[in-house]
């Protein structure tokens, strides 16, 4: 199934992944449990948004936290039909989960300490520094 639509940068706003429809449940000896739906992701003013890495790890964060990224801010401020249909989910084809996780940490860090006089140092492990730089530039944060 092809993903529809595209968004700024290297990520796409797409519909929910249609996984497993080709295989009827009755044919499985141990059916995969259905994902539990998470409230708060619907609508243009949802409380949360979802970011998905290229290895299918999902990160659900507060919308206000995501707004720290200029790219995400612009995306969610002017949502496409596909983004709305996807329950405010953004897929990142270039980011692995450990990178996207660190990005989320930074977004939360900045949100928390934005107006503080004292902010603890934000540690960046050596092995992800280069990838994190690329991600930060793409997300403009």
């Amino acid at each position: 199934m092809d993903k529809n639509g595209s968004a700024a940068g290297g990520f796409q706003a797409a519909s929910n992944k249609d996984d497993g429809l080709e295989e009827p449940d009755s044919q499985k000896t141990g059916a995969k449990p259905q994902p539990v739906p998470i409230s708060g992701l619907e609508g243009p003013r949802s409380k949360y948004v979802k970011l998905v890495s290229n290895d299918d790890h999902e990160f659900i964060i507060k919308r206000e936290v995501a707004m720290t990224s200029k790219s995400l801010r612009e995306l969610f401020a002017n949502p496409t039909v596909d983004l709305a249909a996807a329950n405010n989910t953004v897929y990142f084809s270039d980011f692995q989960s450990h990178i996207l996780q660190k990005v989320c940490h930074y977004l939360a860090y900045k949100t928390k300490y934005r107006h503080s006089r004292v902010a603890p140092p934000f540690d960046i492990p050596p092995d992800i520094a280069m990838d994190l730089l690329a991600a930060a530039n793409e997300l403009e944060c």
Binding site: V103, Y106, Y113, A119, I124, A129, L132, E140
Partner: peptide, 8 residues
């Protein structure tokens, strides 16, 4: 807070 790009 510096930008993440700057920190990296």
């Amino acid at each position: 807070i510096p930008r993440l790009a700057r920190l990296a």
